[in-house]
């Protein structure tokens, strides 16, 4: 029995949890998958490692919608997941005392869409971690990847690998990866001429098949009805028009302004590897630099776009 399962069993009993949301081994190599534990004995199947890329905070708002009772829910969180939980509490999506936050140290998670793009149909039957390397092998091949090649983009510049707020913390806090400057991609992208930038977004968002996996994987997207699902009035068309796809992605990014925790769930969920992170990251930067705000760090600070200061900069106003 690992330290994780042992401690979680104790927490489950001590806290009288009704349900615990954690990770178990998935059905494919290098894929952890969310699981719901309903009794302490069940906890044996829990795991936590770099294959656990999903942001479980997503399920807290889901639970809220299907259950009217005040069940006590435990949740295993990485740094980014914890920030999402905190942000959801700030946004009054559920009561703080009904949630038991169990932090685990995160060394970065593997983005399945990156794995897919790298390996295509070569199938992994085995893998192991070797320091900063991931060695994957299959029937007729073995490949060694630098861990950074497969980690989610957000992980590479992650400053908060451990939950900033928690009730329990299992293991020793992880060191931030920070192998890359947080805004390097953005600086690089901004050097391009505007038309080229627009073309890039048209190309990326043009691939969108409107499956809404990015939206649905995002813990901060919890609206009862999304604007894309409104039919009276129908805000945007569904017929695959490029302009509609663009608007979906811009508005999605805007709705996450000052709320996004850069967990990478959207990018990992996209079946077509669309770059859904770039715009969100630029918005996150604007919020950080203009309003000095980082989402999900504490339970008191209101979301950046739901508050104001009288002396906010207004250089853009005519």
């Amino acid at each position: 029995m690992s330290e994780l399962t042992e401690k979680i069993k104790k927490i489950f009993t001590d806290e009288k949890l009704d349900i615990l949301i954690g990770y178990e081994k998935g059905s494919l190599p290098l894929r952890g998958t969310p699981c719901f534990i309903e009794s302490a004995e069940d906890a044996d199947k829990l795991i936590f490692d770099s294959t656990c890329h999903n942001n479980l905070a997503k399920y807290l708002t889901d639970q809220k919608k299907t259950e009217v009772d005040a069940r006590k829910i435990g949740i295993v969180v990485k740094g980014c997941d914890a920030r999402a939980v905190v942000q959801l509490v700030v946004e009054k999506q559920f009561e703080r005392e009904n949630i038991v936050i169990i932090g685990v140290p995160c060394k970065g998670v593997i983005d399945p869409s990156k794995l897919r793009a790298k390996l295509r149909d070569k199938e992994i039957s085995d893998f192991r971690f070797d320091g900063n390397k991931i060695i994957v092998s299959g029937e007729n091949f073995q490949e060694t990847f630098d861990k950074n090649e497969l980690l989610s983009d957000g992980c590479l510049s992650c400053k908060y690998p451990n939950a900033p707020q928690y009730d329990y913390f299992i293991g020793d806090p992880a060191e931030p990866i920070a192998s890359k400057d947080e805004y390097a991609d953005i600086d690089e992208f901004e050097k391009k001429p505007p038309d080229e930038r627009w073309e890039y977004f048209e190309k990326e968002y043009g691939k969108c098949i409107r499956c809404y996996a990015c939206r649905n994987a995002c813990p901060m997207c919890y609206c009862e009805q999304c604007f894309v699902d409104c039919s009276m009035p129908q805000w945007i068309g569904k017929g695959g028009n490029l302009s509609d796809k663009m608007i979906f992605h811009i508005v999605r990014a805007m709705h996450l302004a000052g709320r996004c925790v850069d967990c990478g769930a959207c990018a990992a969920a996209c079946p077509l590897n669309i770059d859904v992170r770039l715009l969100g990251k630029r918005i996150e930067r604007e919020v950080a630099e203009r309003f000095d705000f980082t989402a999900g760090m504490d339970f008191e600070t209101p979301p950046a776009l739901a508050t104001f200061r009288e002396d906010d900069k207004q250089e853009f106003i005519m």
Partner: peptide, 23 residues
């Protein structure tokens, strides 16, 4: 269904799903 996100990845990528809408 507990972990299902309710996206359309499975149905859109399915070779036998055929449901459509008209707009």
């Amino acid at each position: 269904s507990a972990k299902c996100l309710g996206c359309a990845v499975c149905t859109f990528s399915c070779p036998t799903c055929y449901c459509f809408d008209i707009q």
